[in-house]
């Protein structure tokens, strides 16, 4: 009797482990920091890309309006293709803020002249710290901030048709 219980427990465990490993194989082993729920926008200070003026997050981002923060750099190829989407985003019920990530200022300016400047404000992030404070981990990455100053969505990688329409839904 006791032996039988052991056998049953053993085989249940066996099948359980198999299922877990089987499912585990289907999951990607690279970690992407996905957003769960919403988090408060942290306070930060940064510098304006053009004028180099100091900017405080409280002054830049205020309650009652949607913001989209887009991390980009001139050396990042996917950012180029993404730029078209950003250009078509120009609208009134939100503000698009760019974060220029570890970039050379001249190259970045050329990039903007070539493809246009969709941003209402660009912050410069020379050493990558601002992106970390915002919880981004590479370029391109896009954060959406709602009217209560909470980050509600992160898009890692370039914006494509699918997440573009999602994005439009959120901020419409």
């Amino acid at each position: 009797m006791k032996n039988k219980i052991f056998v049953i427990i053993g085989f249940t465990l066996f099948i359980f482990c198999f299922i877990i490993f089987y499912k585990g194989l289907q999951k990607p082993n690279i970690y992407e920091p996905l957003l769960e729920g919403e988090i408060n926008l942290p306070n930060f200070t940064s510098y304006d890309f053009f004028s180099n003026e100091k900017i405080f997050s409280d002054e830049l981002i205020k309650e009652g309006s949607y913001y989209i923060i887009n991390v980009w750099a001139s050396w990042c190829a996917p950012c180029r293709s993404e730029h078209n989407f950003l250009m078509s985003l120009k609208s009134k019920n939100f503000q698009l803020i760019g974060v220029n990530y570890k970039d050379n200022k001249n190259n970045a300016q050329v990039f903007l002249q070539e493809l246009g400047n969709p941003y209402s404000k660009i912050l410069s992030d020379k050493n990558g710290t601002l992106s970390i404070e915002l919880g981004a981990y590479g370029v391109p990455e896009t954060l959406i901030i709602n009217k209560n100053k909470k980050i509600i969505k992160k898009i890692i990688g370039p914006i494509n048709d699918q997440n573009f329409s999602e994005l439009l839904k959120i901020i419409k």
């Binding site: 570890k102 050493n127 990558g128 710290t129 992106s131 970390i132």
Partner: peptide, 10 residues
């Protein structure tokens, strides 16, 4: 990596 260096600065 660069990212790690930025993280250290933060």
């Amino acid at each position: 990596s660069d990212f790690a260096e930025s993280m250290k600065i933060v």
